[in-house]
Every structure is written in C-alpha cells, then in structure tokens.
Amino acid sequence: MSPGPGPGPGPGPEARGTVRAAGCVLWRPAPDGGGVEVCLVHRPRWDDWSHPKGKIKRGEDPLAAAVREVLEETGHHCAPGARLPTARYVVDGRPKEVAYWAAEATGGAFEANDEVDRLLWLSPGEALVRLTQPRDRDQLTALLDTLPRT
C-alpha cells in the first residue's frame, strides 16, 4: 500500500502540488442547420482563446466544477456528455490537470466579467485556428469524434 492521499476527491493531487481544474468544450447546433458551433472564451489576463475551465474547489466533483465554470465564464447552462481527454501541462512551475467533457449549450446569455471579456461561437474549423494553445485542439478534435455525423 502506498503512503499519502489516494486519487479520490479532496486534497489528493493538490497535496503533491498538482493544480486540478475542469472544463467543457461547449457546443450548440449551428443556426443554419449545418453542423455545430463551438464556444471559445477570451481571458484578458492571459490574452488567450480557450475552452471554459477553472479550478476545482476542495471536495467538489470535477464534472460539477466543469458545469459551474461554463456557467460562470459563458453565462450558458449546459448538458454534459462524453468525457474528453484530460489536458496535462505546467503553469508557473506547477503541474496542472484539466478534466474536460463535451457539453451542449442549453440556454443562457454571455456577460463580460473580470475573467472573460469576450465569447465567440465558431465553426469547428474556425475554432481550431483561433485556439491559442495547441493542446486545446485535442479536446476539440475529441468532441467532434463524439458527435453524430450528419
């Protein structure tokens, strides 16, 4: 048996220095009926375009955190779907893990705030080009693989 906290909720990864976060690749049917649109958010602090995501609160379920972050950052409610690949990278010298889900937007309206000042609904091709971090493209590609072909 190994010492230390296990992989469950609570202090586990944080105790080892890993920042835990969760988010969604938010999508909706395109208004013209031709496929889907993907939501990207602009974070002025980093001047980047990304999927809505944020840190998991102590004791919070990762999926609940992802849905909460979508609402906080986009103003949209969502219906989570398939689990997408986890992103792993280093920020300010600390490892970070972001759990992602596909999520269909079910209603709401965006209002700019301190964390997110702009939101775009883009075709998947436009979103692939707009995403600032190449690692975020993996989740978008995975989302497209989960959606039914029309």
Rank of each mutant, 00 (worst) to 15 (best):
M1E: 10
S2A: 13
S2V: 14
P3A: 08
G4Y: 05
P5F: 14
P5V: 10
P5Q: 12
G6K: 09
G8H: 12
G8E: 15
G8P: 01
P11G: 14
P11M: 02
P11W: 06
G12W: 08
G12P: 06
P13Q: 11
P13R: 12
A15T: 15
G17A: 14
T18S: 12
T18R: 11
V19G: 07
A21H: 06
A22K: 04
G23Q: 04
L26I: 09
W27M: 06
R28N: 06
P29G: 08
P29H: 04
A30T: 08
G35I: 05
E37P: 02
V38Y: 00
V38Q: 01
C39E: 01
L40W: 02
V41Q: 06
H42P: 01
H42C: 13
R43I: 09
R45G: 15
W46T: 09
W46L: 14
S50L: 14
H51Q: 12
P52R: 08
K53T: 04
K55G: 04
I56M: 09
K57R: 15
K57D: 13
G59F: 01
G59R: 08
E60M: 01
D61K: 01
A64E: 14
A65D: 03
A66S: 02
A66Q: 03
A66V: 03
V67F: 01
R68T: 10
R68F: 05
R68E: 11
L71Y: 09
E72L: 15
E72D: 15
T74L: 05
T74K: 00
H76T: 01
H77I: 01
H77S: 12
C78A: 15
G81H: 05
A82L: 06
A82V: 10
A82P: 01
T86Q: 04
A87C: 01
A87E: 15
A87Q: 12
A87V: 00
R88A: 09
Y89H: 14
D92T: 07
G93Q: 00
A99V: 09
Y100W: 15
Y100A: 05
W101I: 03
A102K: 02
A102C: 10
A103E: 04
T106L: 08
T106Y: 07
G108L: 03
A109C: 13
A109S: 15
E111K: 13
E111L: 11
N113P: 05
D114H: 13
E115K: 14
V116M: 02
D117M: 12
D117K: 07
R118A: 10
L120W: 08
L122T: 02
S123Q: 02
G125D: 13
E126Q: 05
A127K: 06
L128Q: 12
V129H: 07
V129C: 00
R130H: 04
R130Q: 14
L131T: 07
L131W: 01
L131M: 08
T132Y: 11
T132Q: 05
Q133Y: 11
P134L: 06
P134V: 12
D136G: 11
D136W: 05
L140E: 00
A142K: 06
L144R: 11
L144I: 09
T146E: 03
P148Q: 04
P148I: 10
T150Q: 03
T150W: 07
